Amino acid sequence: MKIIDVEAIWLRIPSFGELCEWGEDAFLVKVHTDTGLIGIGESDSAPAVLKALIETPSSHSTSRGLREILLGENPLDIDRLWNKMYDESSYMGRRGAAIHAISAIDIALWDIASQHYGVPIHTLLGGKVRDEIAAYGTFIPKDKPADNVTLVEGLLEAGFSSLKLGGGLFGTDPTHDHEVLQVVRDTAGENIDLAIDLVYRWKNYRYAKTQGDRMREFNLNWIEEPLPSDDHLGLRRLAETSESRISGGEGLSTVAEFTEFIRESRPDIIQPDITRCGGISEMRKIHYVATRYSTQLVPHGFSTGILMAATVQFLASIRDGELIEFSQSTSALSLDLVTNPIVLTNGKVTVPDTPGLGIELDEDLISKYRVEMTLGTRL
């Protein structure tokens, strides 16, 4: 079996020049083989950049486009191809966007291998250790605190026993944040786990410590990304002094970067995104390091049903994969790109036993929102 094409697909709902909110653009790949098997993957990153990384013509032996690197290769050689992509694209970066693009392709290769062997991905990863995974609902709070009552009530009706809020205006004004949390906690009750995501909006350790102490009354399950991931000292001091657990790492990539983050920042929870950190292959290595350092791994996941399907397969294969993020995005790409998405039942998701990612894409939706950009053509 040989790879005959790597199709890089950029989707975007708003027109250029209009603001693009979370979930309103997407990047996916289709890895085509000469046997007709097609693997699907995605990366929650900057689509135009990732498309260029895949399609760019080579400059030299360590600055090659990922499509060029893979053509003619056996897609079942997943580990060898990961290393080949990493080595031969190294001038384009060993962190960040270059790894994001490799992540999408890696997921697609696992999809192909699972279909080829006729078993679920979790079987290839060592076996399924759970049939269902508890989910926590992530939502962007309404700007007016009182408007969050109906939103939270809907999440409770869906069966969530764990919630996380972040984005919008949250994190920009302490008084506003306190009012939002008061409404959410009063509506949810004391038995619901509640976490917050600051998206790096707290300015430094002292400011973050002050704000975290002010929020102590809300009994937060964790405080996510209060400071940038490279502020190791600030995060470590928070982890050592905060009553709430400190989490982060959704923007990091590769086991090397996560090892540094864990050693230096000492977070209670790391949150690698399977579509950014290096795919399923690298997520396995990151999980091993987290286990060695007694750090919980709760993957980030705020994108399409492709990310969700890949994350479910990974979590089903590890002993401590007990919690998954469930985005509340209302974007058409989040809701409709996958026609048979992982669904929530009583606050949990069921682990599929079908080969591959087990998903089908809405090709009409892809055609509707596809952005055409071609590299390598001379006029």
Rank of each mutant, 00 (worst) to 15 (best):
Y288G: 06
T304M: 06
V312E: 07
K30D: 01
I269N: 07
R284Y: 00
K51N: 11
F258D: 11
N219D: 12
G171V: 09
G356T: 13
M308W: 09
L155M: 13
G23I: 02
F170C: 10
F302V: 07
I318T: 10
W222K: 15
D79M: 11
N221C: 03
C20K: 00
A52F: 07
G189W: 05
Y91T: 05
I121P: 11
A158Y: 01
A97H: 14
E257V: 04
A195L: 04
S90A: 12
S43T: 03
S253W: 10
I102Y: 12
S114T: 04
I269P: 04
T374Y: 03
S114Y: 03
M1W: 03
Y117P: 01
S61N: 07
L66V: 03
A188G: 05
V338A: 02
L333S: 02
M92K: 15
D79H: 13
S45T: 03
D268S: 10
E55D: 15
S58Y: 07
A146N: 11
I133E: 09
K203Q: 03
G167K: 14
L235D: 02
V129P: 11
A158E: 10
T254I: 11
K285I: 01
S281E: 05
Q328P: 00
S162G: 06
E55Y: 04
G127R: 13
L76Q: 13
G301P: 05
S15P: 06
M92N: 13
I38S: 11
G168C: 14
M308E: 07
V180S: 02
S89D: 09
P341I: 05
E257Q: 13
S61Q: 11
Y86T: 08
L194A: 07
D77R: 15
G118L: 04
S89L: 13
T339W: 00
V149L: 07
T275M: 05
M283Y: 10
S334C: 06
I140T: 12
V6C: 09
E363A: 01
G126P: 05
G347A: 12
E132I: 00
M215I: 05
G168N: 14
L124Q: 14
S265D: 05
P141D: 10
E257P: 03
P352D: 08
S58F: 03
D353M: 10
R95M: 04
R201G: 05
T254Q: 15
M373V: 05
G96T: 06
V371R: 15
Y136I: 04
S229Q: 11
I269W: 04
D87M: 03
I366L: 12
L375I: 06
S265H: 06
D87F: 02
G159M: 01
I286R: 14
S334V: 00
N204D: 14
T259A: 12
I286E: 12
V289F: 08
T330R: 14
H100L: 08
S114F: 01
P341Y: 09
H100R: 15
D268N: 15
L37D: 04
I324K: 10
E257T: 11
G41K: 14
E55Q: 13
R245N: 14
I196D: 09
I342H: 07
